[in-house]
Amino acid sequence: MSRITSLFERLSAEKRRGLIAYVTAGDPAPERTPSLVAALERGGADLIELGVPFSDPVADGPVIQRASDRAIAAGCTLAKVLEIAAAIRKQSEIPLLLFSYLNPLLRCGFDRLAADARAAGIDGCLITDLSVEEAGDTVPRLRAAGLDTVFLAAPTSPAHRLKLVAEYSSGFVYLVSRTGVTGEQAQLSASVGPLVAAMREATSLPLAVGFGISKPEHAAAAGSLADAIVVGSAFVRVVEECGADPRLEAEVEALARRLKQPLLELPA
């Protein structure tokens, strides 16, 4: 059983909701990412999305765009991201999801990527701009290497698309809470509830909700609906604000704790 699947089984058995944390690998520097991930884990993160920096992140808002630019400037290539994953894996069993745009992975080649990612201790891939329609060749190659394939479902996805997304996904399905790019929001979108309900109709896979979750009250609201919540830009903003300052890990850990707390307080 994959680390991702066993995480969700454990969460389900313990009637807990998971906290998924996104960080752009290599920001502020490649050698800093493992300690950042360790801090997230201490703060209560259950799964880490390790973002592969890309020069043209069309699905991301300004915070993650800037993180991508910083990581590339710091020399963070795809090979480097896998080295970072291997370093994390030496110290932790936390599930690692490689979160990437398609082109850097295509350039590497999926057979090589699948083998190298698996060897580095990666548990699955989410490829932002790989639609299920175009994923027919890719999914079997990743699955053959033992990697989960997580796809996005959106408030704009009609029922037939939710079904397709579920068919191509393993581990869990990532529900995008609202139309738009990544980034913090004042309120959690009202489209989350209907999307979770529609997706439950289409699949028994665990569901995670992300996009725009940055505050404890968002975490509580999203956590009451889904099996896990995803927080990205809020963590990346802390990285941006702290830079290489030694307090970075403590700040990130504290934010993870603040976002995890409401999940622990939810009724079982």
Binding site: V58, A59, L102, T128, D129, L130, S131, V132, E133, E134, F151, L152, A153, A154, P155, T156, S157, P158, R161, V165, V176, T179, G180
Partner: peptide, 18 residues
């Protein structure tokens, strides 16, 4: 699906597919 041989297609985040 908009492929000219291997080229073209629809490579966008799910939100834009519909």
């Amino acid at each position: 699906r908009g492929h000219f041989g291997p080229y073209g297609g629809r490579y966008v985040p799910e939100t834009l597919m519909s």
